[in-house]
């Protein structure tokens, strides 16, 4: 059987299939449907320094081949995570990655420092790209100086693998990627959601309570694929591809574009078994193409 394992900095993943933060809860929501340990790893829901109630309802609007969300980082804060959620994650033996967000650099640093002490959290993904919070989030990820500042500050307190999740809502995602690489990131993941809007024409009102929200799902896949391809050529650190991945073919396209691993997001909502089906599909592809190692696909476009 072909080798499926890939490396992201110090992380050795048993396969390149991860879950996107905010679409997989804390893993246990999916225990009834799949063996969560079969995944390369899981990215749990974003954690902030303080409890956040998130945005008011309505937080979601279905759109053609996707959806907008405006959840707004609802979570109970890092101390609750350490006390009550982390112990429950210990039942998983695969790679657990915490997604870290906040509204201030000090907040990011506080969460990262607390995550650094948790043995079973093998990496953090710095979320500088959430479009659904008034302060922080995407604001950090849309300019090189602020992306650099938060990455550098977190790097000082975090010893393990530091992934930075990039926003597509920028003029040049390559420049941001290079900035966070220079500031000490060990990998980048992209893309977070695209800023969008939905309007109810009958009511003449925006659908979301926040007016705008983050677009995800297959609708954004071509944009994500293009950005992954651009960034993978421009940085030396590994790239994790995210954006509308629903099938094994989608996942393979991202690997060919240069991603070393991928995250499955919105597809989890329609099919909680999407991740394990994608792993099986990648195996089938490798066998069909007589490729012995999935790493041969990474950046493997034929010119």
């Amino acid at each position: 059987m072909a080798n499926l394992s890939v490396n992201i900095h110090k992380l050795n993943l048993k396969n390149p299939v991860l879950t996107a933060s905010g679409t997989f809860g804390y893993g246990e929501e999916f225990d009834d449907f799949i063996d969560v340990n079969a995944l390369g790893g899981i990215l749990v829901k974003a954690t902030t320094s303080k409890h956040r109630e998130g945005n008011p309802y309505p937080r979601m609007a279905e759109t053609p081949m996707g959806m907008l969300n405006a959840v707004g980082l609802q979570n109970k804060g890092v101390d609750y995570f350490v006390e009550s959620i982390y112990p429950k994650l210990l039942k998983y033996s695969n790679c657990i990655i915490a997604n870290v967000s906040d509204s201030t650099v000090e907040g990011y640093v506080e969460v990262a420092a607390k995550m650094n002490k948790l043995e079973h959290i093998s990496a953090i993904e710095l979320n500088i790209s959430c479009p659904n919070v008034k302060e922080g989030g995407m604001a950090f990820g849309t300019s090189c100086p602020s992306a650099t500042a938060v990455t550098r500050a977190v790097r000082e307190v975090y010893d393990k693998t530091l992934i930075v999740k990039l926003s597509p809502n920028v003029t040049s995602i390559v420049e941001i990627a290079q900035a966070v690489e220079a500031a000490g990131a060990d990998a980048v993941s992209l893309i977070n959601t695209l800023l969008g809007m939905a309007i109810d024409a009958e009511k003449r009102k925006p659908v979301l309570s926040t007016i705008t929200g983050g677009l995800s799902g297959p609708a954004i896949k071509p944009v994500a694929l293009r950005m992954v391809w651009q960034v993978a050529r421009a940085v030396k650190i590994p790239v994790i591809g995210i954006g509308g991945i629903t099938t094994a073919t989608d996942a393979i396209e991202f690997l060919l574009a240069g991603a070393s691993a991928i995250q499955v997001g919105t597809a989890n909502f329609i099919d909680p078994q999407a991740t394990t089906k994608i792993i099986k599909g990648i195996e089938d592809y490798l066998e069909r193409h007589q490729i012995s190692d999935v790493n041969q696909l990474i950046g493997g476009l034929i010119s």
Partner: peptide, 11 residues
Amino acid sequence: ACGIGACLCCV
């Protein structure tokens, strides 16, 4: 969206 408590959209 999800129906299983993962997306936190239906609060």
